[in-house]
Every structure is written in C-alpha cells, then in structure tokens.
C-alpha cells in the first residue's frame, strides 16, 4: 500500500508568508530568557508556522510518518512523554485509565515478522468520530487535526464506538492539578491532539521530540518540501485500515 500524498493548492506565494516568516523569527529570537529552544523542537516549515493571532489554515495538513523499523519493542518513551506533557495521570486501573498514545506489538500471521509501533489518533481526513458526534464536539480543524471540543462534549461516547483505532478515551475519574495548557476533566472524551497547544505556537508534539530513535517524523503533508512529504515520496508507507478510506494523517513505514 504505497501512499502518495496528494498535493493540494500550494501556498508558496501567499502574501503573508514572508511576514509570517519574519514574525516567526522575531518570536523565536525573543523567546530567550532562559527558554532556550533547541532548533530541532521547532517545525521545519517556517513558511507555514502561524503566529499566535492567526487562525489555522486549510493549506496545512499536519501528519506523521512512523518508521516502525526504528521503533524498539519495549520502549515507551513517546507514551511517557505524552502522559507527562499532557498531565495524563493514571489510577492504576488500566481498563479505565486514559491513553492518548499506546505501544502495540504485532506479528504477521504469514511471515512471523514482529513489529512494534505507537498507536494514537490517526487524525483522519474523513473521521468517523466527527460524523457521529451528536453535538459537534468532535471536529476536525482546518489544519487537519481531529479534536474534541470538551466544552460541548456531553460524554455520550458514541465517537469511541465509531473509532476504528480505539484511539479515544473517556475520562472515568475526577482529575485534579491538570497541566495548565492541557485542561481535562471527568465525563468527557479525549484523544491525542498532536499537542495542539504546542503546534499552534510552532512547536512539535512531545512524542515526536521524545523519540530517541527519531522514528516519528512530524510535518505538513500538504507541503511538498517538508521533510515528511519528501520521505513519503521515497519510502513505501501504510495507512492503518486503508480499506475504510478514511485517509489518516498518521502513516506507518515498514509495517
């Protein structure tokens, strides 16, 4: 299943892009004051980075390529980083504790090949969770990430029934002392947000930066010059349950 990224209208010459680039550098330069940001934390697509007051744009579609050959069985750095970064505290009850990203190890029934990989919200282009949500709390942002607007989520869990990847969790218990940038509380559904609070400010999701093997390549699927798109052009990659034609934004290499 070799998937080619479709290139939608390109935005090389969008008027604000030069301005945005300048502002972005300003912001990076100014972010000093003890907050030394390693360049690798920042997104490569400077032209697409938005400033805080800009709305997200349709020209971007965030996605990720996971190189399973680099993903070690037994390593869960990404899972730990996610829990830490988003304040996902467990209660030692695996059946009801939330998990935004999980490690799964699979074995091919024919060849016996064992593959280990992280599995999270696949940020589909046609997300079933969005279709079924009665209040519209489940929605897809213009830039392709699928989120829950917890302000109007009533906790009916229909989206969890609909998700083919079991990517969503219901918050079964009272939450205290949340991370300031990741509000979450009892009675609503949630899932991986691609660390939207970071993304909106031009940083990468924490799992991608935490992965010591660089197995998670994050970027803009719509930008043919992004490292992600270039890699997708070279290697063969798989979408999970491609038969459902949901066109997920997360792709797997070597599966």
């Amino acid at each position: 299943m070799n998937h080619q990224v479709s290139h939608s209208a390109q935005n090389e010459d969008v008027p604000h892009s030069e301005n945005a680039r300048r502002q972005f550098f300003l912001k990076v330069a100014g972010a000093g004051a003890g907050l030394a940001l390693a360049p690798s934390l920042l997104l490569q697509q400077v032209a697409h980075a938005k400033t805080a007051d800009q709305a997200v744009s349709k020209e971007v579609r965030w996605g990720m390529l996971i190189d399973t050959s680099k993903c070690a069985q037994g390593c869960d750095d990404c899972v730990k980083a996610c829990s830490e970064g988003n304040g996902l505290t467990g209660h030692g009850r695996p059946e009801t504790d939330v998990q935004w990203v999980r490690k799964v190890t699979v074995k091919d029934k024919q060849t016996g090949k064992v593959t280990s990989l992280p599995l999270m919200c696949q940020h589909c282009e046609h997300p079933p969770c969005v279709d079924v949500c009665p209040t519209g709390a489940s929605f897809k942002r213009d830039n392709g990430i699928v989120l829950v607007d917890k302000h109007i989520c009533i906790g009916c869990r229909y989206c969890m029934m609909a998700c083919p990847y079991k990517a969503r969790s219901f918050v079964h218990e009272v939450v205290e002392d949340q991370k300031a940038h990741a509000p979450r509380g009892k009675g609503t559904v949630e899932s991986c947000t691609f660390c939207v609070h970071k993304l909106d400010q031009g940083e990468q999701p924490v799992c991608a930066t935490a992965c010591g093997e660089d197995a998670m390549l994050f970027g803009d699927l719509n930008d043919p010059d992004s490292a992600l798109s270039k890699r997708l052009q070279q290697v063969s990659s798989t979408q999970l349950r491609a038969d459902m034609e949901l066109n997920p934004g997360v792709r797997y290499q070597g599966l």
Binding site: A52, A55, R141
Partner: peptide, 18 residues
C-alpha cells in the same frame, strides 16, 4: 476566546483564561 482557540488555534493571550 475559548471558541477561537479551540477551533481556529488562535492563541492570543489577552483574553486567555490561562
């Protein structure tokens, strides 16, 4: 601000609850 942040990713600080 809540709706702007949630849906459009606008992260201005002026009216942010944070």
């Amino acid at each position: 601000q809540r709706d702007e942040t949630m849906h459009k990713g606008i992260r201005t600080t002026k009216y942010s609850l944070l």
